[in-house]
Computed example of a mutant assay.
Amino acid sequence: MVESSAFWVESPHVGVLRRETVPKPGDGEVLVRTLYTGVSRGTEISVFSGHVPQSEFDRMRAPPHQDGELPGPVKYEYLNVGVVDQGPESLEGRIVFTLFPHQSAFVVPADAVVPVPVGIPARRAVLTGAVETAINVLWDARPLIGDQVSVIGAGMIGCCVARLLRGIPGVEVTLIDVNPARQVVADRLGVGFADVARPPGDRDIVINTSGSAAGLQLALETVVTDGEVLEASWYGDRPVTLMLGADFHSRRLTIRSSQVGAVAASRRGNRSRRERLELAMRLLHDPAFDAVLTGESSWRDLPEVMASLARGAPDVLCHTITWGEPK
């Protein structure tokens, strides 16, 4: 038996660290000691702040290793990188990514972990879940060679989407954000940047990752006639108001949703969720993704870190939590 520390959301805006006993791994299981976890500024902060509507409690059980029930007490997160201490010989000592909450040690089935390829730093591997989401967004968006694409919202997901778009030949990518300081991040990602007051127009595709009604409205205003806006934000229980008068109908615009819970319909017949996750991991050989890692704290400070992020932290993209170092 191993003693571990785990972060729980006790109730909206209240987080605590609990001691938990972890059993020895059985056949086909691994004991993982956590090195880093990452905070999802979208979904996880919505859970922490109590903004998940009751109608979504069951569907929001997407992290396979959630403990407790929404709205709380609940242990909820899915960006975990650790080292396998015990398990099958092929995995022992390997650094792995797991869709597991903030916890110092845990046991899961061996097929629940994805080995991190040699050459990818453990901290960068925390972004596997974000890049997996970005892959799904682009499978839904289906950009073509030479497209002009805007990504509204230079957060963790928006930045990952923009970096992947940059790799498509001829595609012109512009990140749009209310925070002018995100220009520096866009430069590191190798993509264009525009302020919300001066966005480019007539874009072939506009992807909204801003989590705001204003961002979605801007997407409608800047997409080409007969164009499609892909909505990749999740609003929890917050209402969204749009201006669907004016030229929305005359320009025959389309709003389509994207969500990582299921593989995009365009790939669902020939890609599994495991394959999508493994693809995300391989793409993290790209060091430009380090631009998305913008803060780091000890696991001991998690309750305060979560409360601070929930209050608003405009300069934070992916904040990582440090649990230990590889042996």
Rank of each mutant, 00 (worst) to 15 (best):
G15E: 04
A112L: 02
V184W: 02
G38Y: 11
I152V: 15
A232I: 05
S40N: 07
A105C: 14
A130I: 14
G146Y: 06
I205E: 00
L283P: 08
V161P: 10
S298G: 14
L317T: 08
A162V: 03
G201S: 06
A134T: 01
S258P: 15
H65I: 06
V14H: 13
T254V: 13
V137K: 09
V171W: 03
F248E: 12
R142Q: 15
Q66E: 13
S40V: 04
A197L: 03
T43A: 03
W299F: 12
A310Y: 06
V47F: 09
R124M: 03
L242V: 03
I145R: 15
S210Y: 00
E172A: 12
E228G: 04
I152P: 13
A154Q: 13
S90F: 02
V81R: 08
G215F: 10
V114H: 12
G42H: 07
R182S: 11
R251L: 05
V74F: 11
Y36H: 09
L218M: 07
S46C: 01
S297E: 10
A264C: 07
N270A: 08
L189A: 14
G42P: 04
P101I: 02
H51M: 09
V14L: 09
A214N: 06
D290H: 13
Q86I: 00
I205Q: 01
S298I: 04
V83N: 05
V126C: 08
E275Y: 08
G158H: 05
M243I: 00
E44T: 07
E172P: 03
N80K: 05
L79Q: 03
A6C: 11
D195A: 11
G155Q: 03
V96G: 10
E221P: 09
I321M: 03
L253A: 10
A194K: 07
V178W: 01
V173A: 02
V81F: 05
Y76F: 14
R300M: 08
G15F: 06
E89S: 15
G28A: 10
D290C: 11
A310P: 09
V263I: 06
N80R: 07
A288E: 08
R19M: 10
R142G: 07
R274D: 03
Q66R: 15
I152D: 15
V96N: 14
I255D: 06
G93D: 12
A213F: 03
E231C: 12
R19G: 15
L309T: 01
V114Y: 13
D187V: 01
P180F: 01
V30G: 10
D147F: 13
G170I: 00
A246T: 07
G38W: 09
H51K: 13
L218F: 04
G38P: 03
G158M: 01
V32L: 04
F57A: 01
I176P: 14
A280N: 01
Q217M: 11
V116Y: 07
